[in-house]
C-alpha cells in the first residue's frame, strides 16, 4: 500500500509537469483531470472518503468538462 501511494504521488508530479509544459491545450487539460483523479485516490488512502468523493466527482468530472467547453467556444470562434 505504501509503495503504491509513492508511485501515485510520483505519477501526479509527472502529470503536473506535463500539464504545465505541454504546448497542446487539450493535453494539458487532460493532465489536469489525471492529477485530480490521482489526488482522489490519495485522499482515499489518507482515510478521507468524503473528500475523495468530492474530488473525484468535481475535480475529475466537472472541471475537465468546463475546460473542454471553453476550448470548444474558443475553437469555434477561430473558424468563424
Amino acid at each position: 500500500m505504501m509503495i503504491l501511494s509513492y508511485l501515485l504521488i510520483l505519477l501526479m508530479i509527472i502529470g503536473a509537469l506535463a500539464a504545465v509544459l505541454f504546448e497542446n491545450l487539450l493535453n494539458s487539460i487532460i493532465s489536469l483531470g489525471l492529477i485530480s483523479l490521482i489526488a482522489a485516490a490519495l485522499m482515499f488512502i489518507l482515510k478521507a472518503p468524503d473528500v475523495a468523493m468530492t474530488e473525484a466527482i468535481i475535480g475529475a468530472g466537472l472541471t475537465t468538462s468546463i475546460f473542454i467547453f471553453t476550448l470548444i467556444k474558443i475553437n469555434r470562434g477561430d473558424s468563424q
Partner: peptide
Amino acid sequence: TPGGGFQGGAV
C-alpha cells in the same frame, strides 16, 4: 455514510 449535500449536488 460518506457523502452529503456537496457531493450529491455535484452528482
